[in-house]
Computed example of a mutant assay.
Amino acid sequence: MAFFDRAKLLLAGAVAIATLGTASVQAQEKFDLSPDTSNRVRTERNEAAIKAIAPDFKFVNPGKFTVAVNPWDPPIATYASDSKTVVGADPDLASLIADSLGLELDLVAVAWADWPLGVASGKYDAVISNVTVTEERKEKFDFSTYRRDVLGFFVKSDSPITSIKEPKDVAGLKVITGAGTNQEKIILEWDRQNVAVGLKPIEVQYYDDRAAGDLALQSGRADVEFNPNATRAYAASIRNDTKVVGIASGGWPLTAEIAVTTRKGGGLADAITLAINDLIKNGKYGEVLKRWSLTDEAVDASQTNPPGLPKSGS
């Protein structure tokens, strides 16, 4: 590698590190990532929801709502500044549901791979951790929906691109996305449709490093990023260097929804659905989404076990 190329690479890395450091400070200032959760949005007991709990349902710990959560990324769920307390939109919703059911919240941080067995075996009352409803999962679990599974198109804040709504809008663009993801499947299908009608193909770009992807977008090496709306909207609200120009369902062309997940036939799902619908009605649900920049993902009503994304090959 030539000296000039090495210098450019080092400079790019320094810029990326500085950007991440600034973003971390801005995140602390804009979002409450402190371990003090006393200011979480709270609500009153919901007697109708409590009565809807099956008479034979037994909570893991009497008087507590034991909820598994995977602290994977803000704003959904992440560790607070003490690196121990889990904060974010999903923990806040878990707290509201616990209030509604007249219970104390016991939030348990788990690895993503561990929640299915934990819920099925009765180790946790529920998992609230960005779980999408699928037909395959419905064979083992019950669901109470609370957020749309949304992907977002993000561009540099001063980009001339103002709207992306359909395949033709991305023709000829350089698009960052995640390898092996739903969003990759969608963008490749959009590209296939475009090429079939004579439009310019897209150039797909993949970055394992978050900072490298951000740098590509800001430098103009990429035109747009297509990835989960929640995390990218959070970043955009902190740094103000990107903007959302379109959204698509994570199950495009089908609608995909995120849900509270409980044991199949356990007798808790209907109660949670009632609780969420009351939270939507009284505005507490909206307060949580607004607090974490997730208003675009709001549902009008919670449903118990709605149609999920189909099984592979169906």
Score class of each variant (00 low, 15 high):
83 S>Y: 14
84 K>M: 11
85 T>P: 13
87 V>R: 08
87 V>L: 11
88 G>E: 14
88 G>D: 10
90 D>Q: 09
95 S>M: 11
95 S>W: 06
96 L>M: 12
96 L>W: 11
96 L>Q: 10
98 A>Y: 12
98 A>M: 09
98 A>W: 10
99 D>F: 07
101 L>G: 11
101 L>Q: 12
101 L>K: 09
102 G>V: 08
104 E>H: 09
104 E>V: 12
104 E>D: 14
106 D>I: 01
108 V>E: 15
108 V>T: 15
108 V>Y: 13
109 A>I: 02
110 V>F: 09
110 V>M: 14
110 V>K: 15
111 A>S: 14
111 A>Q: 13
112 W>G: 08
113 A>N: 11
113 A>F: 08
115 W>T: 00
119 V>L: 09
122 G>P: 03
124 Y>A: 01
124 Y>H: 01
124 Y>F: 05
125 D>K: 04
125 D>Q: 02
126 A>N: 00
128 I>K: 03
129 S>C: 03
130 N>E: 05
130 N>W: 13
131 V>W: 05
131 V>C: 04
133 V>D: 04
133 V>C: 02
136 E>C: 01
138 K>T: 06
138 K>L: 13
139 E>D: 15
139 E>I: 04
139 E>Y: 01
142 D>L: 08
144 S>A: 15
145 T>F: 11
146 Y>N: 11
146 Y>K: 05
146 Y>M: 04
146 Y>D: 10
149 D>E: 14
150 V>Y: 12
152 G>C: 12
154 F>V: 10
157 S>W: 07
157 S>K: 13
161 I>S: 06
161 I>G: 06
163 S>V: 05
163 S>T: 08
165 K>C: 05
166 E>F: 02
166 E>D: 12
166 E>Q: 15
167 P>V: 02
168 K>T: 02
171 A>N: 05
172 G>K: 01
173 L>N: 03
173 L>R: 08
173 L>C: 02
175 V>D: 01
175 V>N: 03
175 V>K: 00
176 I>S: 03
177 T>L: 00
178 G>F: 07
178 G>M: 07
180 G>T: 01
180 G>S: 04
180 G>C: 01
181 T>P: 04
181 T>W: 14
181 T>R: 14
181 T>M: 10
182 N>D: 13
182 N>E: 12
183 Q>T: 06
186 I>C: 03
188 L>R: 14
189 E>R: 06
191 D>L: 05
192 R>L: 05
